[in-house]
Design a protein around this nucleic acid. Structure first.
Length: 1065
DNA sequence: GCATTCCCGGTTTTT
DNA sequence: CCGGGAATGC
């Protein structure tokens, strides 16, 4: 707690004995001799003598001081940290941080320019130097991730104490908080429910139904998603249903195209507009009746609240907005209203991008600008290429970026015949780079950034085939899973019985034989009686209403009982965890899942995860809300009135709140559930740490990795075929590129499977310029790292460069296990020819077979693993070496007829085969440990440690060992992994959206496509049998917070494809 | 009300 | 091509 704000002086006076010195803008006070100093924030402005500018001396009683000292103790520790907050800032950053708080500022931050650092430092500065109370600072972000990161950084800088008081969160979270607090002011229930997109969609679908005939007659197709996006757009522009209504609807809100003359002569666009207008209107009504707000409403109502009730933002003395260039109209309005007339704000924009609001600079008469152009993240080569991409955007204000880093390896742009080739090339490149970096890099240093999630299939398959552990960020959101939604919906009904979507969802879960018809009947009655559907059911249950034909009284009684129990608990302040547990018990949800889903185990895992989440949930909202903030506790009872003045605890006029309106932990939990898509949480699991990351470009914002791959840099992907704003897409690619610190790979395919068919594709228009005119911005081969490069990499990554010994060892090992020698390759040339000539996929240029340098040759490995296609990738061809004995392709590589072994990845390590220890496959942690026993992986993992003596057998030895262990282990293997009888169940594992996939050290089935590439005969690789278990069973699902092991139950063919698909009913 | 079959649509992201 | 939703059958 800072004692700096004038309103806090009453707290300062009685406590402080002496202001001893003023130094570094900090005031030290001493309680009395012998007691160590307490360091306080700089209360200079208020606590110095105005004329002498010397600190004032204040007397106090020791007992009071003792209290004070205790509460300040934590702050003191925090302060020690924050004293340094200006250190290490460059001139521009310093300027941004120290910019006078009363002058609006716009910060234009390039990638990797330390934006978050500036932002957090500035907050520290505002608090310490300018004596702005943390509670009166508001920091807005677009994503939870950004908010969380800022929170974490701030906690390090100024401590939890201060941070928890700052109003920090996404636009949506902030609005939700204020709306709940002041719900009555704008006429919504304090227990309003946030309606997620899925429920909105359901509502729209329901409202759209009456129009289906009408639309069909006119040959107009109008899907609910289209309507939703129109409504959403309207809302973000601040348009109401009235604004969208056609003339008829405006004239008579009750009118409808349905009741009007059927033979009108409307254009299709007019038809659509009319229907959208009407649905919008009805949608709004429906939501209102349900006492709920959708995501857009949070902002729209937020604007209304702040606009019409200025006193609500009285607390705000400083506003910081992140990603300002992305603000839409509503968000911009929100900003202006929150900041108030003073416009004491700082807006952070990506370099070179100004929002349209800022462009019309009338709003920013006195705004000053600071440019952060020093890039600390990437090599010059990466930055140059990135800038070359973005600078094609004409609307962007050209700005120069600088980096202190050296050039480094040029970004790679490479083409492949198919996405499988692309994927496997990426997979092998990961391994190659780990070796070639001399162990500086490990799996976690690689990210594969995709334009859209659907591109991850091939990639995941390839990584899996190579035995590379990986994690998919994002994917399906935890709170969108069917089973989770069921339970949350129950709790929503408990908290807000008006919320019809939730009621409808759970009234028949588990099955109570209440079908659509009965539900419709209940809803109709509810409407008629103007009560909630729940109330209807309750009254029937209590005999106060006549029953409906199929006896609802009996059927729904269990439902009513459950709700009543939970409601009672909730009102009494029960914790969300307890409520969820009770709920699951009461409705016997586990039984329900078992009965209806063969993949109930994974769903049950999700349920347990929800309980965990609920139990761990603390009512410390993203945004400190006055009364509940621990920080406020201090000082409570002293002078709350004054405190309230700036603590945003001003109660609304209507201070009498009905009991049901009292905020419960449940309510806070529900809100958090709806607003947090937060998938963070794997951090508690260090063993999960070393994994290649697969993420969407969007999800990658704000993150960085030493090595970044961007596959599918193709037309139709970059930019997305459905993108409306091309420049936005370009910026997205730019963002993705600038995530890379040391190495950047972009690739595209000449053909790609889309919508089930193979389609030709071409390089993205964003890249053609760079690719063609050869300014030396790119290279088209895989980089050969020089010692210099390694040194540069070390510098950029702030890591120690590898020792020569280490490098040599890794290289040798790498070459030995994964690369063929040139001569062996040449020897196999004819074979390759014949092989590729039957290759099923199109688009294989001739170049394709010129130089495939399959890494192969671990015996029994299907050649397919490497598919082909490192064409024109003249890298790292291991020189024929006498030390690394490589089996010639002709013999070791499974030729056309040889039975195929497991994929490369799965170089079956003796241990893996000899110890079919199930447990090691069951837990992510141990499995990872298991992985690390593998020499290469160990290298990756312990990059900085001296390599243990690993005896790398040559291939001959290897294969014989392997053969032996195979022969010895068939039964064990089968136990481990009942065989997969269907070779055609192709498919990379983990097609679903699991967040985390553990790739087992054992073989996994190859994607059939790969197999076929090798040989049209589609032999089942021998290794397949033992592989089965590992694939599916290693998969984990990503639940917010925990990795879950999924498939430990037996091998269910095709299971993996279903299991992650959860979703919503 | 529940299970099977058929057909259609799919691929942005974020809250 | 694959999965989910709708329609149909029981």
């Amino acid at each position: 707690m800072w004692l700096s704000h004038p309103s806090q002086q009453h707290l300062v006076h009685p406590h402080i004995l002496h202001f001893i010195s003023l130094r570094q803008r900090l005031i030290y006070i001493r309680r009395s001799p012998g007691v160590r100093d307490v360091c306080l924030s700089a209360a200079t402005a208020t606590k110095t003598n105005p004329t002498t500018r010397r600190p004032l001396l204040v007397e106090s009683t020791t007992s009071a001081l003792f209290t004070f000292t205790k509460s300040v103790e934590k702050t003191r520790i925090d302060m020690k940290v924050s004293v340094d907050y200006l250190k290490g800032l460059n001139a521009a950053q310093l300027e941004a941080v120290q910019h006078p708080p009363h002058i609006p500022l716009q910060i234009l931050a390039g990638p990797g320019s330390g934006k978050t650092k500036v932002l957090t430092s500035r907050i520290a500065h505002l608090v310490t130097v300018h004596s702005i109370p943390p509670t009166s600072i508001c920091a807005v972000t677009f994503t939870n991730k950004a908010a969380n990161e800022m929170r974490e950084r701030l906690e390090k800088l100024v401590g939890n104490h201060v941070t928890s008081q700052i109003k920090l969160g996404t636009f949506h979270a902030l609005c939700a908080m204020f709306l709940r607090k002041h719900a009555t002011l704008i006429g919504i229930g304090r227990n309003f429910t946030v309606c997620d997109a899925d429920e909105s969609k359901r509502v729209v679908a329901k409202l759209l139904k009456p129009y289906s005939d009408y639309l069909e007659e006119r040959n107009v197709t109008l899907k609910e998603t289209a309507i939703m996006s129109r409504i959403s757009k309207a809302k973000t522009k601040g348009l109401t249903p009235v604004d969208l209504a056609d003339a008829h609807l405006k004239a008579d809100p009750k009118s409808s195209v349905l009741t009007r003359n059927k033979v009108d002569t409307l254009e299709p666009s007019q038809v659509i507009a009319s229907v959208v207008g009407e649905v919008y209107q009805r949608y709004e009504k429906e939501l209102k009746r349900s006492n709920s707000l959708d995501f857009d409403d949070l902002l729209v109502y937020g604007v209304r609240l702040f606009r019409d009730h200025p006193h609500v933002n009285k607390w705000c003395r400083h506003l910081l907005v992140d990603e300002f260039q992305d603000t839409n109209v509503v968000q911009y309005q929100l900003m202006t209203y929150i900041a108030g007339a003073s416009r004491l704000w700082v807006a952070f924009s990506r370099n070179g991008e100004l929002s349209t609001h800022a462009k019309s600079s009338t709003d920013f008469p006195s705004t000053q600008q600071v440019y952060l152009e020093q890039n600390y993240r990437s090599t010059a080569a990466i930055l140059s290429a990135s800038v070359a991409i973005i600078s094609q955007d004409k609307s962007r204000i050209p700005k120069t970026l600088h980096t202190s880093h050296s050039n480094g390896p040029l970004p790679v742009l490479h083409s492949f015949p198919s996405e499988q080739d692309e994927a496997s090339a990426i997979a092998t490149e990961v391994k190659r780079m780990i070796a070639h970096s001399g162990g500086m890099l490990s799996y976690k240093d690689f990210a594969i950034l995709l334009r859209m999630n659907s591109l991850s299939r091939a990639i995941e398959g390839a990584l899996q085939a190579e035995g590379i552990p990986h994690t998919v960020l994002g994917g399906h959101r935890f709170f969108e899973r069917m089973e989770v939604k069921d339970l949350v919906a129950y709790l929503q009904v408990v908290d807000n019985p008006q919320f019809v979507p939730a009621f409808v969802r759970v009234i028949n879960v588990p099955s109570r034989a209440i079908g659509d018809k009965t539900v419709a009947e209940i809803l109709a009655r509810a409407e008629k009686l103007q009560v909630t559907p729940l109330e209807v059911v309750e009254r029937i249950h209590d005999g106060k209403l006549p029953d409906i034909k199929p006896p609802v009284k009996r059927k729904a009684s269990s439902f009513v009982e459950v709700i009543r129990v939970l409601r009672k608990m909730a009102v009494e302040g029960a914790k969300p965890g307890a409520l969820a547990t009770k709920l699951i018990e009461l409705i016997e949800y586990q039984e329900h899942l078992k009965k209806h889903h063969d993949d109930w185990e994974s769903r049950w895992d999700n349920v347990e995860e929800l309980v965990n989440f609920a139990s761990e949930f603390r009512y410390v909202p993203t945004v400190a809300s006055g009364a509940n903030s621990p920080a406020v506790a201090w000082g409570k009872g002293q002078d709350t009135a004054e405190e309230d003045d700036w603590m945003d605890d001003v109660d609304d006029e209507d201070t009498i709140v009905p009991p049901s309106e009292i905020d419960t932990p449940l309510r806070a939990f529900l809100q958090a559930s709806m607003l947090s898509t937060d998938t963070e949480g794997g951090k508690d699991d260090p063993a999960q740490h070393d994994r290649v990351i697969i993420a969407t470009c969007h999800a990658a914002k704000g993150l960085e990795w030493p090595v970044v791959f961007i596959p599918a840099v193709e037309k139709g992907v970059f930019p997305s075929s459905r993108a409306e704003d091309i420049e936005e897409e370009r910026r997205l690619l730019y963002v993705a590129c600038t995530r890379a610190q040391g190495l950047l790979y972009m690739s595209y395919c000449t053909s790609r499977m889309a919508a089930g068919t193979v389609k030709r594709s071409i390089l993205s228009e964003f890249m053609t310029a760079l690719s063609e005119d050869d300014e030396g911005l790119l290279q088209h081969c895989m980089p050969e790292l020089t010692d210099d490069d390694r040194q540069i990499l070390a510098t950029v990554l702030r890591r120690a460069p590898p020792s020569d010994a280490m490098l040599q060892q890794l290289l040798n090992e790498y070459r030995m296990r994964s690369k063929p020698s040139e001569w062996s390759f040449a020897a196999a040339e004819s074979e390759i020819d014949s092989f590729y000539s039957v290759k099923p996929f199109p688009g294989t240029g001739n170049t394709f077979r010129e130089r495939s340098q399959e890494p192969v040759p671990i015996p029994n490995q299907p050649f397919a693993t490497f598919t082909s296609a490192k064409n024109s990738m003249p890298l790292d061809y291991p020189k024929p070496s006498s030390t690394s004995k490589v089996t010639p392709l002709g013999t070791s590589r499974p030729g056309a007829n040889a039975p195929r072994g497991p994929p490369a990845a799965a170089k079956p390590h003796k241990k893996d085969l000899a110890q079919p220890n199930l447990s090691s496959y069951m837990k992510p942690r141990s499995s990872n440990l298991e992985l690390s026993k593998h020499p290469t992986r160990r290298l990756a993992k312990e990059s900085s440690m001296p390599m243990p003596d690993v005896s790398v057998g040559n291939d001959g030895v290897y294969s014989s060992t392997l053969a032996k262990s195979r022969a010895k282990q068939p039964i064990a293997n089968q136990n481990l992994a009942p065989s997969n009888p269907t070779p055609s169940s192709n498919a990379p594992m983990n097609l679903g959206r699991s967040k985390t996939n553990v790739t087992p050290p054992v073989q996994t089935p190859l994607p059939s496509s790969s197999v076929q590439k090798v040989n049209n005969k589609v032999n089942i690789p021998a290794g397949r049998e033992e592989s089965k278990p590992s694939g599916p069973s290693m998969a984990t699902t990503a639940v917010a917070g925990t990795k879950r092991r999924l498939g430990m139950r037996g091998p269910v063919v095709g299971y993996t494809n279903k299991k992650f698909k959860p979703p919503t009913r």
